[in-house]
C-alpha cells in the first residue's frame, strides 16, 4: 500500500515560536503552473507588532553577545542549512526553479552565511577608530547596532534574497522583523526552522509571511523599529517607506541585491559611538626612559 505523505503546515516565526497568524487568515500563492504552493499565513499588523516586541526583547542580549559567539552561531546556521539542502531544493523546485538553479541558490546561501560568520568579529576593527584629539583625552569611535530593523525581503527569490538581506543586519547585532517574499514564501518558513535549531536566540530573527501592501505602512510608522531595509523592488513603495518613516527619524535603506558579500551592509545598520575619557597628566613627565 502506498504511504500517505505528511504535509507541512507553513507558520510564521515570532520570538522563537511558530504561531499561526493571530488573524487566522491565509493566502495560497501559486507557482507558474498554477498549482497552489500551500496555505500561507497572511500576517496582520498585530503579528508585526508582536514580532517587534519579540525583537526588542531579544536586542540587548544579542547586541551584547561576544562578536566571536555571533560568528559561531552564523556558522552553525550554515551547517544546519547545508544539512537540509535537499528540503530547500525540493521547495525551490516546487516554486518554479530548475534543479540546477535550486541547488545553486542553496549553496550560495550557505556560503554567504560562512562569509558573514567570518565578518562577525572583524567589521568592528575595520570601521572603528582611535581619534587623536588635541586635548588630554583618550577618544575612540566604535560601531553599535541600531536596534530593531524591519526587512522587506526581495520578491524574486525564495531563499537567497531572504538570507542575503537578513544576515548582514544580524551579524552586526541587530534583531530583525522580516516580511518574506509574497510570491515565493516557502523557504522563509523552512529557513526559520533552520534558525531555530542553530542557537540563534528566539526573537533575533522574526519572519512573517503575507502581503507587502498590508504591512508596508506599519513597517514605516512603527515607533520601535529603528531602521528598515527594503528589498521589495518597488520604487514607489521605497519612497513611501522613507516618507512615513520620518516620525522617528527612521533609517531607511534600499536593498538591490547587487553586492551581497559586502561588509558595508553591516555598517549601514550600525551607529557610531564616540567615547571620551581624560588622561591624567601630572607634572609633564613622559615615557622617554
Amino acid at each position: 500500500m502506498e504511504r500517505l505523505e505528511v504535509l507541512k503546515t507553513y507558520k510564521i516565526y515570532i520570538g522563537g515560536q511558530f504561531p499561526r497568524t493571530e488573524s487566522g487568515r491565509y493566502y495560497d500563492p501559486k507557482n507558474a503552473q498554477g498549482q497552489a504552493l500551500a496555505n500561507i499565513c497572511l500576517s496582520s499588523r498585530k503579528d508585526l507588532r508582536n514580532a517587534v516586541v519579540a525583537a526588542r526583547k531579544a536586542f540587548g542580549g544579542w547586541a551584547e553577545r561576544a562578536h566571536f559567539n555571533r560568528g559561531q552561531i552564523l556558522y552553525r546556521i550554515a551547517e544546519m542549512l547545508e544539512g537540509r539542502k535537499a528540503q530547500f531544493v525540493e521547495e525551490l523546485m516546487k516554486q518554479g526553479s530548475t534543479k540546477a538553479a535550486a541547488e545553486k541558490e542553496v549553496d550560495q546561501s550557505t556560503d554567504l552565511l560562512v562569509y558573514y560568520s567570518g565578518w562577525a568579529d572583524k567589521y568592528q576593527q575595520l570601521f572603528s577608530s582611535v581619534n587623536p584629539v588635541a586635548s588630554s583625552h583618550f577618544n575612540f569611535s566604535a560601531l553599535e547596532p541600531m536596534g530593531v530593523v524591519g526587512i522587506v525581503a526581495p520578491q524574486d527569490t525564495s531563499l537567497f534574497g531572504l538570507v542575503s538581506s537578513i544576515i548582514p543586519v544580524i551579524t552586526g547585532g541587530n534583531t530583525v522583523v522580516v516580511l518574506a517574499s509574497e510570491k515565493l514564501p516557502l523557504c522563509a518558513v523552512t529557513f526559520a526552522e533552520v534558525l531555530n535549531s542553530s542557537d540563534v536566540p528566539g526573537g533575533v530573527v522574526n519572519i512573517l509571511t503575507g502581503k507587502e501592501s498590508e504591512l508596508l505602512e506599519q513597517f514605516a510608522t512603527h515607533m520601535d523599529i529603528n531602521a528598515v531595509l527594503y528589498g521589495g523592488g518597488d520604487a514607489k513603495n521605497y519612497i513611501r517607506l522613507k516618507e512615513l518613516g520620518t516620525d522617528n527619524v527612521k533609517r531607511v535603506f534600499n536593498f538591490d541585491g547587487a553586492e551581497t558579500e559586502n561588509p558595508y551592509l553591516i555598517a549601514d545598520f550600525q551607529e557610531v559611538k564616540t567615547t571620551w575619557h581624560p588622561i591624567e597628566n601630572i607634572g609633564g613627565s613622559t615615557s622617554t626612559y
Binding site: N139, S141, V249, R251, V272, T274, W276, H277
Partner: peptide, 26 residues
C-alpha cells in the same frame, strides 16, 4: 547615544566623530 563623555563633558575636536542615535539624527 552617539557621544559619551566619561568624567568630562562637552569636549569637541575635529578628529572626533559627532552625531546622534534615534531622533537625534543620523
Amino acid at each position: 547615544a552617539g557621544v559619551v563623555w566619561a568624567n568630562t563633558y562637552n569636549r569637541f575636536d575635529p578628529v572626533s566623530p559627532f552625531g546622534g542615535y534615534k531622533e537625534s539624527g543620523f
